[in-house]
Every structure is written in structure tokens, then in C-alpha cells.
Design a protein around this nucleic acid. Sequence first.
RNA 1: GCCCUGGUAGCUCAGCUGGAUAGAGCAACCGCCUUCUAAGCGGUAGGUCAUGCGUUCGAAUCGCAUCCAGGGUACCA
Length: 569
Amino acid sequence: MFKDIILETTLNAIDKAVSNKELGQMESTEGLSFVVEKPKNPEFGDFAVNVSSLARNARIAPPMIANTIANNIDTDKFTTSVVAGFINFKLSDKLLADVVKEILEKKENYGKPVNPKVEKIILEYVSANPTGPFHIGHGRWAAMGSALANLLKFYGHEVYQEFYINDAGSQIQKLGRSLNIRIKQELGENVDFPEDEEERKNYYAGEYLIPVAKKFLEENAPAEDIQVLSDYAKKYMEQVQKDLLENFRVHFDKFYSELDLHNSGKVEKCFKQLEANGKLYEKEGAIWFKSSEYGDDQDRVLKKADGSNTYLTADIAYHIDKIERGFDRLINIWGADHHGYIPRVKASIEALGEDPEKLEVLLGQLVNLIINGEEVRMGKRRKMVTLDELIEEVGIDATRFWMSMRSIDTTLDFDIELAKRSTDENPVFYVQYAHARACSILRNAVSPKLDTETGKTSPAPMSEDELKSALENFDSEAMLKAIPTAKKLVLKLEEFKSMIDYSAKTRAVYTVCRYVQDLAGEFHSFYNSNRVICDDKELMKSRICLIYAIKTVLANALDILGVSAPEKM
RNA sequence: GCCCUGGUAGCUCAGCUGGAUAGAGCAACCGCCUUCUAAGCGGUAGGUCAUGCGUUCGAAUCGCAUCCAGGGUACCA
């Protein structure tokens, strides 16, 4: 990466200056760190390093320090200049031309770090109850989670994607009772969900169980056994969820059933282990876990007074199981409403002798839907908008992009009208259009052109073979001619590498969205002031290489986001 | 009360490991299609970075306090 090269060069120069005793009282370069930034004013250069922080140790004024260091830089990769405490770096055209070359060589692998520090990661997200259709909030985790998985894999990590099915709690009985009512209604009985608000909470009154009831009656004789109905509805909803995820380009390696976890004896085993470690006690008929010993606000119940387990009990076993399966990093995406849960899960991991640092929880703020400019809060009495309705309305690409484009720390406003629009107000189309436009140029370069006025066809600007040869036998010398008007664009193409590095390390999918918009912008701008298909054949070939590089990087980035890169629009 | 997020342009948001004149998109206004996709480009205008105090040569960025918004604070999942 350019940033690394510059950093290394700077540190070497400082080393040299220190050993030459040119930096006053500075005696060592140990522990020094600098940030490579972009100068505010592009006239200054392409990158800059501020060395003012050395002033204190060296006891020399920042401009002097910068000059001394700059004088110790000896390379033809870039030219340097000094303004105040800043060393500005201007990259050579050769270095920039090499970026295009690298992209053409590495193609879909361009941007992968050379020696990444690889981890075996299990990424858990969505993990909804199988009691109903996904709502739009699940959509955010699905889009972000799958994009994060793609990103981490692209970086080089080994990523295992998992969906934890909460199929063991009391909510399953609730589902069965609700289906029972829907079935009776189908049979013409005059029954309905309780009017009383408190009692109604024991049911899922949503209409989505009506088709389930119909299907049940098609396949079975009428039944009232709640256990049978629960199982049926659960399986049905699980399938509905799985189908939707697949359609939404979200692929889990495993759907992990909580019920299986219980049946395997792992829950009981963890419980016993905690007991043996002296971390449990009885109070008011329930069994409590001393999570407050590990920083939690208070202790937590694991076994209720009625003898049943709480949700936490199974969750502890689940996380221990992840560690026992050999993953060295557990990443969970949880909604912000679960934040209080983190200390107790970490406490349990520690109490069982494992490293709680392995668990990394990404807390996501919730989603607000904007319909006709009005905020529609989810849940409560309002009509719940489901994820499949949203996808139906705005499409998979737009939904995925919009769900991923904001920092996970900020509440997402999903404006349906905007996301549906195919104009410049919509960033998805802006980016996809750039890709389609690049493809179009590559097509035109090898297509004969029909003049609509004269009716004559002129030969293609270049033959298929010439195109192939231009891409395969990269001409660095010729590229130097194309660089001056494409500088910003090439810098942006190079930035893909540092973007990947940063995004993967900070788990920030939204930076990929931002990057791809920036790159599209640079390309559109380039397109408007430079003709690719032109009379100067050498220049045309170089620009074709450039266009191919842009198309490649756009596609790589969109692929990570799980958004399609159309050849035509 | 306590815990977690956030508060930056009219709107939606970047920037937050402290550094040059605080950025982008949209909306507004003015321009650009006889040439590779105008779903595009160029330009103008728009700011007390919630507020106060502190740390620092230097604060949108770090610390403390206050205010505002959302979420959490179950022997529910």
C-alpha cells in the first residue's frame, strides 16, 4: 500500500537522521508512529506525514525537523516538499501506472493483503425466533452480516457463518396456541385472540399464521395438540426464513438449533461445570450465576424456580460450544436492545475458564422506516413491515446497499421512496451505473460503429485480439501518458487496499459502501473529461486498461456487499 | 437512578488512534448532451461541529459536567 511505503520511508529517514545526530536530542526511533494523511490542498502532494510530534523529543522546531527528515529521503518513487511540520509526498507516475498493472494482474484478488493475520472466525447474526416472518430490522443484520462475512473472507480470514435458532423457549408454545386459533377459524369456528391486551401477549396475532393454518389442514386432519401444532408452525416458519435468506444472498454454513443444544446435554454440562467452579447459588428457589464477580451489574438467574432454564443458560453453553469447536474469534451481531446481555455472556465464558476477549459483539442500532417522508416506528400496534415486503418493493440490491451503508452505531433511516428511485438521489444506482458504463466502453471498443445519418458502419476501434493483448501485455511506458489526467482516479483505485485493511479490522462494512461511491464518482468525473475511444491508439489502449481496472475494482467491492454489478442498465 | 448509542450544512451522514481552510450525497440555484450510457459532469451557496469547563503548542476528535434523542435495565426470548 502507498501508505505503508510512505510510512516506512519516513521512519527510515528518521532513523538515518538520528544516527547522523541531525535530530537534536533524539536518540531512538522506538515507539514512533505517524499517520499518513491526504493533504487538504492537492497542490501540496498526494500524501502527507506530520512530524510535529517529534518537536518535544528533539527540541527543534517542526519545520526544521520536517526538512531534516525530507533531506534523508532518497527514492525515485516520489518527490517531497515541506510545509510547516508536514512532509508532502508526490507520487511518481511510474508508481501510479503500476497500480493499474497490479489490478490487471490480480483481478478479483486485487486488494487482498499480502500477509494477513488470519483468524478462524465464527460470525453469528440474525438468529431470530422461528415464530414469524423477518421484519426490516432482521434485514439490516442479514445484509450487514453477510457483507461482513464476505469482507473478512476477502481479507483472508476463515469465516464460518451461523444462525442460532431459538426454537426451545416458551415462545414456541405460544406459536402453537396461535396456530390453533387460526386453524379453528379456518374450520369456521367463532374464536379469536383475546381482547385483553395482557392476555393477547400470549399469542402471535399476526395474519401470517393464516396460510400456515390452511396448509396444515390440507396436509393433516384437524388437530388441537399444541405440541404438534408448535412443531408444524416452527418448521414452516424456519423454512420461510431460510428461503428468504437464500433469496437475499445470505448464506449460513449452519443453522444451529437451541433444542439440539439442550438434547446434546451441553447445557446441563456447562451448568454443572459452573456449579463445580462455585459460581452458582440458590436464592428464592432459583439458581443464580455470580456474574457480578466479573463486572456484570447483578447476578443472573440460570434456573428458574419452576425448574426450567432461562435463555441465558443455553446461550452460555452455545458460546462455550463455539470456543470448543476451535474458533479463535466469536463475532456476534446483536441489536442494541440486547446490549445488557454482553457482560453476562462474557462473565460466563470467564467463569468457565475461557478467554472472554474472544467474544466480540457488534451492537447494531435499530432501523426506522420512512414512508412518504414519515417515520414509521416498528412494532407496537403499527403494522409491521416485513423484510420480504421491503425486498419486493425496493429490490435486493437496493435493500442490501441501504442496509449496509451506515455505521452500525447509528440508527438507520430507511427511506423506501428514495431507495426505490432510480435517479442520482439513489447511491446504489449511481454505483451500478458506473460499472455498466465501464462495461459499455469496453464493448464499444471492439464493436463496429453504425453512423445513424450516413447509414455506414465504420470498423471497430480495436479488434478483440488487440483488446486481449492490451490487457495481458501491460505497457507501462504507454500508461505513463494516460496517468496525468487520471491521477485522482488511480489514487482511488489504490486506496481500495487500505480501505479493505481498515474495514476488515474495524468490521465496518459501511466504509465499503462509501468507497464504492467515491470510486464511482471519480470514474464519472474522468469519463466526462477524457475520451477513452480516441484516435491516439496507444492512449486508447492505456485508457482501456484503466477502464478495465475500474470495472474490476467496482465489481470486487460490490461483490463484497452482495450487490450485483450489471453489465448493462 | 444506572448502562449502551447518537447529537456536525435545510435533510441523510462521513471525519473522532488530536494537526494545514471541517467533508460527501441529496435538496436549492447556475451551467454542460451533433462524440464512448445526461441513471452523468462542472460550478455557486449553505457551519457557534448540542452546551460549558478542562488537558494540549494545537480539540469536531481526548476528559469531566449538563441538555436533547433512541435503546436497555425480567425467574421473556
